[in-house]
């Protein structure tokens, strides 16, 4: 028979050591899904570089909707900005939704959730560790795509200054700093979709429902955002300010929308996270 602590726990069991972040990350990185996303994050900038190199004809410019496309090939930094611009509203949303939405629901689907809870990993701790692991993987994916774009873009287009569409330059050092700010902003803003997916993940046992539900919600808001008649209501959408990071390219930096975007995102993230914890604390695990 085992030696026992006063709490009734077996010797060697400490709640604060259960499901450590490193263990959860190891679990996540043993999954093909995680590896696949990261592979995609590496591949995407390379594919875009190839596309830009191939389509570097003159008529490509006439077709461009975004100003940033025109100058995407000006430097590695420019290319990175272009990649971020292209991925903000869809690709990164899906990545965040995947990492946050899959995390609890997939365990429920495998049936491993009950064993983890009976280990016992305290429920709040399980959720917290899952949340942190999802954050780490999501941000790592974001950083990966940025770094790969920066390096590969630099090799392809030169390690130069940021050049904006009307020809204003931002020096490379300053540009890198601003890029870090942009990645930071995106990491926070995307928490909205992430935490929404996380909440759904605690409700459903189907990972697809959590991931798809949150992405679908974001798309609905993105579409509603196009409806001018809704006026200032749109400022309160979870998708509001999703491109506010472009303000970081202004000189001087206009912090108004950024600030607002950060606060609003954190607020949404806090609410969704609180809902997730509240639901999970009371839930009967029947999966």
């Amino acid at each position: 028979m085992s030696t026992v602590q006063s709490t009734g726990a077996v010797a060697g069991y400490r709640p604060e050591r259960t499901l450590r972040l490193s263990v959860e990350l190891r679990r996540q990185f043993k999954r093909r899904r995680t590896i696949g996303v990261f592979a995609l994050m590496v591949a995407l900038p390379l594919v875009l570089i190839a596309a830009l190199q191939l389509g570097a004809s003159e008529d490509a410019q006439a077709n461009s909707r975004l100003n940033l496309v025109d100058v995407a090939t000006a430097s590695g930094l420019n290319f990175t900005l272009f990649v971020l611009f292209a991925t903000t509203s869809f690709f990164l949303v899906v990545v965040y939704a995947l990492f946050f939405g899959d995390t609890v629901a997939s365990e429920a689907q495998w049936g491993s959730l009950r064993y983890a809870l009976a280990t016992p990993v305290p429920r709040m701790r399980l959720l917290r560790q899952k949340w942190l692991a999802a954050l780490v993987t999501s941000v790592a994916a974001l950083v990966t795509v940025t770094v790969v774009a920066l390096v590969a873009g630099g090799i392809a287009f030169g390690f130069g200054d940021i050049r904006t569409p009307i020809g204003i330059s931002i020096a490379q050092g300053d540009g890198l700093l601003r890029l870090a700010g942009i990645v930071g902003y995106l990491a926070v803003h995307l928490l909205v979709v992430g935490t929404l997916a996380f909440w759904l993940s605690t409700i459903t046992d189907a990972p697809l429902a959590a991931v798809g539900g949150s992405v679908f919600t974001m798309f609905v808001f993105a579409i509603l955002d196009q409806v001018e008649q809704l006026g200032s209501i749109r400022d309160y959408f979870p998708t509001a300010e999703e491109f506010a990071w472009t303000d970081l390219l202004q000189t001087p930096v206009d912090s108004g929308d950024l600030y607002r975007g950060v606060i609003q995102s954190l607020l949404y993230a806090a609410v969704f996270t609180a809902l997730a914890f509240r639901h999970f604390a009371r839930r009967d695990v029947t999966s």
Partner: peptide, 8 residues
Amino acid sequence: AGAPVLSR
């Protein structure tokens, strides 16, 4: 839920 004794 999550009682330490469950570790036994």
